[in-house]
């Protein structure tokens, strides 16, 4: 197929009651069945709309706030689909009790749709294994994929666990999990994995997958790490389809799912108000690398290193998500501006058309190691609205803006070619079709 229909579901997960004592496996299954009752209805709706595949979120079946011990009743032994040919719907007891895999498999089979879900895997280990936990087993945050016959075709153990996931173990090596379909080659990873090289970049750059399946439980952080913003940018930067299904829990800043293609979002959902779930369905190219809009190569530093730097204004420091940026205020209605930090210089050309007097914008640069919820090296160029006219608020989260820009061009002297172009509009909206990336590394407004 040249094209296929993808679905993602942002699920408002029903959480178990917080407990220090593990519940029985019957009570654990009761809770998981409540979530799967909702997923069942959604899977039927997606299939009725012609979807070939549906992605559901990380923690979408058992929720969160577990210890290692309280999670255990929710886990099942998930076999390696590379080694076994298994349709749990037909033979659920083959590898021990597997009621969750059985139900997911049957939903896939009965609705003739690929189903992607996130559940927990347990694997006994030998005490002679120096890494074997004291309780004698590993437990993994796991994505599973069932094909339209209900067969288990992929299993992925999350590698880059988020800091609050002490209930899980990570695999010794990153797993590079792919599978082929009549609508392209797929890869899979989970949530925090997207910020790291392995397995995320390897799947795209070396294994040449067409679409990434991405269950997540993403806590939004403005101005740069809101789910819809960063995930759509990653799909554009990597030139790959990304099916991102977020858990919906506004109290934890979790919302924002989308069907993202290399040329922009095809459908997205962001709802910080209600506690409702949302199904998204959209058509994608099965092989985006041979679609007409595919960008074959971008040299992200070409323009920025070729031009003579623009004048620098009085710089000042500001914090974005614990990182100290160097900022420069946009002092006039239009102009050219450069701001540098260490090896990174960021250039901006802009023209405001409706400047609001009570709003201040700044150009910022950051070149350094981020060391808070994980350790990863960033080089960031950003044009942003400051929270108030006080420059000390530049970099603080903002959701509403009124100043209009008629034109912008942003570029930087990046040391890496892995650069993700983010544009976020007032009200936390994406801007598909309203900006473009040039092959010389400029991010410019479309008109």
């Amino acid at each position: 197929l040249d094209k296929y229909v993808a679905a993602v579901y942002e699920h408002s997960v029903i959480l178990p009651e917080t407990t220090q004592k593990p519940v029985s496996s019957e009570d654990a299954l009761k809770l998981m069945n409540k979530n799967m009752d909702i997923l069942e209805e959604v899977i039927k709706r997606a299939a009725a709309q012609g979807a070939h595949i549906i992605v559901t979120p990380e923690d979408g079946i058992y929720g969160f706030f577990f210890t290692r011990e309280t999670l255990y009743p929710y886990l099942e032994d998930i076999p390696d689909p590379q080694e076994v040919n298994w349709i749990p719907c037909n033979d659920s007891q083959r590898f021990g009790p597997a009621p969750v895999q059985e139900r997911l498999s049957c939903l896939a089979r009965e609705n003739a749709i690929y189903v992607v879900a996130n559940i927990g895997d347990k694997k006994p280990c030998n005490p002679t294994d120096p890494k074997c936990p004291n309780d004698g087993h590993y437990q993994y945050n796991t994505n599973v994929v069932f094909d339209s016959d209900g067969k288990l075709v992929a299993r992925y153990h999350k590698f880059n666990l988020f800091m609050s996931e002490a209930q899980f173990d990570f695999p010794k090596e990153p797993e590079v999990v792919t599978f082929n379909t009549s609508f392209g080659k797929f890869g899979v990873f989970t949530c925090f994995d997207i910020l790291f090289h392995d397995p995320a970049v390897t799947l795209v750059s070396e294994l040449k997958v067409d679409t990434i399946l991405f269950p997540t439980a993403w806590m939004n952080v403005l101005p740069h790490l809101t789910a819809i913003e960063f995930h759509s940018a990653w799909a554009m930067g990597m030139q790959v389809n990304l099916l991102s299904s977020n858990t919906h829990k506004t109290g934890m800043n979790m919302t924002g799912s989308g069907i993202y293609a290399p040329d922009g979002s095809q459908a997205y959902h962001y709802d910080a108000e209600s506690e409702n779930g949302q199904l998204l369905v959209a058509e994608l190219h099965s092989h985006p690398s041979i679609s007409p809009t595919y960008l074959h190569s971008v040299n992200w530093s070409l323009y920025a290193t070729a031009i003579k730097p623009f004048p620098e204004n009085n710089n000042f420091k500001g914090i974005i998500f614990f990182d100290e940026f160097t900022f420069s205020k946009l002092n006039s209605q239009a102009g050219n501006l450069t701001v540098c930090q260490k090896d990174l210089c960021c250039h901006l050309s802009y023209r405001m058309t409706e400047q609001q007097e009570d709003e201040v914008y700044a150009l910022g640069a950051f070149d350094g190691l981020h060391v808070v919820e994980g350790e990863y090296y960033l080089q960031i160029c950003t044009l942003l609205k400051c929270r108030t006219t006080d420059l000390q608020t530049c970099g603080e989260p903002v959701t509403i803006a009124h100043t209009r820009f008629g034109y912008f061009s942003l570029s930087g002297t990046f040391s890496t070619n892995y650069v993700f172009p983010e544009v976020l509009l007032s009200g936390v909206h994406l801007a598909p079709g309203e900006f473009q990336v040039l092959s010389d590394g400029q991010l410019i407004s479309q008109n």
Partner: peptide, 30 residues
């Protein structure tokens, strides 16, 4: 121009080669 005013326009670069080695131990409790 854009349909709504801009909150942020960003080039978010990840320089993977400069990441520190991965810790042997798993993540700490938040």
């Amino acid at each position: 121009g854009t349909t709504k005013p801009i909150l942020t326009v960003t080039l978010f670069g990840r320089w993977y080669e400069s990441d520190p080695p991965r810790p042997e131990k798993g993540p700490a409790q938040l």
